[in-house]
Nucleic acid binder design. Structure first.
Length: 950
RNA sequence: GCUGCUGUAGCUCAGGGGUAGAGCGCCUCCUUGGUAAGGAUGAGGUCAUGGGUUCAAAUCCCAUCAGCAGCUCCA
């Protein structure tokens, strides 16, 4: 009895592949190359999750398939190994993050090998390797050394930055400061989440509702000097570059929304000094100056500059709002308002960006006491401060047009500010009357009213005309804005890449303001050894705790203090795809010829959760490297596929009220705090789990078996430790084998879909593999022996057709990454051939090559038993023969008025008229026609006949 | 609120203007005391709903409903 035993077969073949370097990347790239990349994992302490192997299996199939077709394949794997969990573990236990990280990497490696992926393990890397982050630091140096030339839309060396004469006149220090203000990597004061109680700075994800996730202590937003990357300079290029990428449209849209390009205008509102009407003199002077000098780059302190996408609604601007952090706020606030404004700003500082921009919050704000003059009509309008205006977008100030902007309208209602409609909605608009009365808001386009000489013009016309007129007066100019912000690139953490930056200090140890990069030949800057990893209680990075022999550096006779921030986790993942190509290069981040040979990545597979940040950051770095001549392709990832999430097993749940009575899901709603309550009584309800026996299908959903009026919830949930529905790949491999796990993950459904796990589905594909085994091996025999049905004769016509249909389907589906359908076809093949008395060897062998990318261990084993000494992974992919696909005679349906009434047998190349005749000759057809008349005959060769009768 | 995706067998999913499919599950029968068995049969579908286009719609178009996911004060 020799049964299929994956636990014995799989480790043996994994060892064989390792030993023979079966999947080594070819040194020389052949005619066609394919770079197949997985998003590398963060090696968490929990090990692989069944979600990981989904994408990895897909890319593995693509890689094995491509190799079989003679392509040169690069298919590497690595680890995104810096990150918070290891550091938290270190704080708790004192164990160095490096130790835990290595342990996790080892475990991940074991699991990945256990699944039989054909990675080139000689190229494995971790972002925490010193030889890797040496080049991460080096790339930071490139960013530091680059400025963005907006005219050329290109990053250029800082040495080529034109220095304005007035700067040059001030000397070296001024020139250096000017350069610093243009570098792609620059220092700025950014807000961090400082938790005084914990004595540490927190990452955004560690802050929940303005409190620390750990302990629930208040978190304050305080400014800290930090590194920023000027990704906004690349906004336009990042947006345009999307066009040519073979990415899911959803992801492209997410990125383009994230970049958020909008066009509009910037408009200056003159700040009124005294009471209304007092400003005629200075205001006239201001206007006259503007008319001659034009619109200045820097608005100065005389006016408040706003950005608007609707300059056509200027006549409807009834007040203005500045962000709590607006730089002019101290000028704007009148003494009698100061206390109130200060209190408001203090309160706002405790809110995270997230909170301030969250949902349908009621609008808050405070009057500053100042007024500005509306340039359209000279009206005096009040200036408020409110946190619904963000300091970081546009100019940090808006003109509020409550009649035509929802947010402004809400604010105006809350604070009783006037609403003046200036756009007449289309006549058939439901709320037109309310809108015209200032009782409702209308944000779309229409015809101008209450807008002086512009009345009657369309929104587009007013926009153009009014902007032009204000531009002529030097009060406005067209402007483009992006939602995208510069990338806050430093973290106050230990477990990250140190910056290769030195700050000069004087003999007293005080910073002089001069900075320099660590010279390339002194990279990498490694992490210092710390006695412990506990926070030191100041809003500074943990590296500041390091000893002076790390912290203080002498170079060229000057003393420097090292930068103590570290880079964010994103840094290492921004360029790892380049390093795989040349992982051991100690002279450069990548060899230029190898870069040309392998880039760009042909297929990149990973989760949609990285749709925006990782992919945008990578593209940004890549474009900088491209501009600086280090890479030759403008985009790193040609084709991108997102695998869907794998959910836990489907669960049935119901709700019970406090008395323990079941409540139908129809009668449950969420209250304002998100708790589930009974719709009618408002009583809280509790979720209870149900077994399969307790429910029964009814219509669209499920109901309680004991009471059909109670609808229950039937759905799968995200796998989570707390829910206890996590499936562990180790146990699946132990119980079913790696090939079954691989096959099941692919058979669950389309790669991109979200799908629930079902353990009996794994059993299903396992029995398919058992069937394949028995199709070839004589299982009842004690000695391993081929089945007697496997013979050396040729296929009969039907077998040949089934074989070639299968070759075609699997080939085409592999290309299209439609793995589930390819598997279904291979199941059909197996069903057909196991029913055959004889199974020609040629068919079995071709089939095994088709199945090998999916279930490589088993196919290697069967291939060997069929008498081959060479790995099946090295066999060429079979080709299908069109001639074998055609049938001598096929069944054609005959429809009467579009309904199938009979079937006739015909040659596949019968002509339409022959088909019509054959159909009419059929007794069943005649019967169906009865005494009606055939008025039309439609015959589609090879498909069907339709007779239209009356 | 906005955006996107999805509604096909009890479940998970293919297909896609012209014959309704796979795996799992289920019924019946057969084989088998190494068996998380195997084999053979069969049942089960108004292709979410309502319109439209067409000789013909599950498929294309429009609307509606339901589910899921993501985003959301960006002026």
């Amino acid at each position: 009895m020799v049964r299929y035993n994956p636990n014995e077969i799989e480790p043996r073949w994994q060892a064989y592949w390792d030993e023979h370097h079966t999947f080594a990347t070819p040194e020389k790239v052949g005619e066609k190359k394919r770079y197949v990349l997985d998003m590398f994992p963060y090696p968490s302490g929990d090990g692989l999750h069944v979600g990981h192997p989904e994408g990895y299996t897909a890319t593995d199939i693509v890689s094995r398939f491509a190799r079989a077709r003679g392509e040169s394949v690069l298919h590497p794997m690595g680890f995104d190994a810096f990150g918070l969990p290891a550091e938290e573990h270190a704080i708790k236990t004192g164990e160095h993050p490096r130790v835990q990280t290595q342990r996790n990497i080892d475990n991940f490696t074991r699991q990945l090998k256990m699944l039989g992926f054909s990675y080139d393990w000689d190229r494995v890397l971790a972002t925490t390797d010193e030889e890797y982050f040496r080049w991460t630091q080096w790339i930071f140096g490139v960013l530091y050394d680059t400025w963005f030339d907006h005219d050329q839309q290109k990053g250029r060396p800082i040495s080529e930055l034109p220095i304005p004469a007035e700067v040059a006149a001030e000397g070296e220090l001024a020139i250096e400061q000017y350069r610093d203000s243009k570098r792609l990597a620059y220092l700025d004061d950014a807000l961090v989440n400082w938790c005084p109680k914990l004595g540490t700075v927190l990452a955004n994800e560690e802050v929940v509702d303005g409190k620390s996730e750990v302990g629930g202590h208040p978190v304050k937003r305080i400014p800290l000097r930090q590194w920023m990357l000027r990704i906004t300079d690349y906004a336009e290029r990042l947006l345009e570059g999307l066009d040519d990428l073979d990415w899911p449209t959803g992801i492209k849209k997410l990125q383009s929304d994230w970049i958020g390009r909008s066009t509009g205008g910037e408009v200056d509102f003159y700040l009124q000094r005294g009471a209304a009407g007092d400003d005629t003199g200075p205001f006239v002077a201001f206007k006259r100056a503007r008319e001659t000098e034009g619109f200045p780059t820097d608005p100065g302190k005389d006016c408040l500059r706003v950005y608007t996408t609707r300059p056509d609604t200027l006549f409807g601007a009834t007040y203005m709002v500045v962000a709590p952090e607006h730089p002019l706020i101290d000028v704007l606030v009148k003494p009698e308002q100061k206390d109130e404004v200060d209190a408001y700003r203090e309160k706002a500082s405790f809110k995270s960006d997230r909170e301030r921009t969250d949902g349908d919050r009621a609008k808050t704000g405070v009057f500053t006491g100042s007024h500005a003059i509306n340039p359209a009509d000279g009206r005096s309008i009040p200036i408020w401060v409110a946190d619904y205006v963000l300091a970081g977008y546009g100019t940090g100030a808006i003109m509020a047009v409550p009649a035509h902007d929802e947010r402004d309208f809400e604010f105006a209602v809350a604070f009783d500010l006037p609403v003046i409609p200036v756009v007449d909605p289309p006549a058939d608009h439901k709320q037109r009357v309310e809108i015209l009365a200032g009782k409702a808001c209308f944000a779309a386009e229409g015809v101008a009213i209450n807008s002086g000489e512009y009345d009657g013009k369309t929104t587009a016309e007013v926009k153009a005309a009014l902007t032009a007129e204000l531009a002529r007066q030097g009060l406005a100019c067209e402007a483009v804005n992006y939602k995208l912000r510069d990338w806050l690139f430093s973290r106050q953490r230990f477990w990250g890449e140190p910056f290769p930056v030195l700050h000069e200090i004087d003999s007293e140890g005080n910073a002089t303001g001069v900075r320099r990069l660590v010279p390339d030949d002194q990279l990498p800057v490694t992490l210092p050894e710390l006695a412990d990893f506990k926070p030191h209680g100041r809003p500074e990075p943990p590296l500041a705790k390091a000893d002076d022999d790390w912290l203080i550096v002498e170079l060229d006779g000057k003393r420097y203090r090292r930068e103590t921030n570290t880079m964010p986790q994103w840094a290492g993942s921004c360029w790892y795809y380049l390093r795989y190509i040349d992982p051991k290069n100690s002279d450069a981040l990548i060899d230029p010829q190898k870069e040309k040979d392998w880039m760009p990545v042909d297929l990149y597979v990973g989760g949609a959760e990285h749709a925006v940040l990782h992919l945008l950051y990578s593209r940004f770095w890549h474009k900088v490297l491209f501009d600086r001549g280090h890479v030759t392709c403008p985009e790193p990832f040609g084709k991108l596929v997102n695998q869907g999430m794998i959910l836990g097993e489907v669960e049935f749940t119901s709700f019970v009220d406090p008395s323990g009575k079941h409540v139908s899901t129809k009668d449950v709603k969420k209250d304002s705090e998100g708790n589930r309550v009974h719709k009618a009584t408002g009583e809280p309800v509790e979720i209870v789990a149900l077994t399969e026996e307790q429910v029964v299908k009814k219509g669209e959903g499920f109901v309680l078996a004991s009471d059909a009026s109670i609808k229950v919830v039937s759905r799968a949930f995200k796998m989570s430790k707390s829910r206890g529905n996590v499936v562990n790949p180790d146990s699946v491999v132990r119980d079913y084998g790696a090939d079954s796990l691989r096959l099941y993950e692919m058979f669950m459904g389309p790669l991109e879909a979200t799908k629930p796990w079902a353990m009996n589905g794994v059993g299903g594909v396992r029995s398919f593999l058992d069937r394949v085994w028995r199709m070839i091996i004589d299982e009842p025999e004690d000695e391993l022996k081929l089945s007697d049905a496997v013979v050396d004769t040729a296929c009969d016509e039907e077998q040949l057709r089934v074989l070639h249909q299968t070759i075609r389907k699997v080939t085409e589906d592999n290309e299209a990454m439609s793995f589930n359908t390819a598997i279904a076809k291979m199941m059909e093949f197996t069903n057909h051939f196991t029913r055959c008395e004889t199974r020609p060897r040629e068919a079995m062998e071709s089939f095994l090559i088709l199945l090998a990318p999916y279930a490589p261990h088993m196919c290697e084993e069967l291939w060997k038993h069929l008498g081959h000494n060479e790995s099946i992974s090295l066999q060429p992919w079979p080709e299908w023969d069109e001639a074998a696909l055609v049938q001598a005679s096929i069944e054609i349906p005959v429809q009467i008025n579009g309904k199938v009434k009979a079937k006739i047998s015909l040659s596949p190349d019968a002509k339409p008229n022959e088909m019509g005749e054959a159909a009419l000759a059929d007794a069943a057809v005649q019967n169906a026609i009865g005494d009606k008349k055939v008025v039309k005959t439609i015959a589609v060769p090879g498909r069907m006949v339709n007779l239209v009768v009356k």
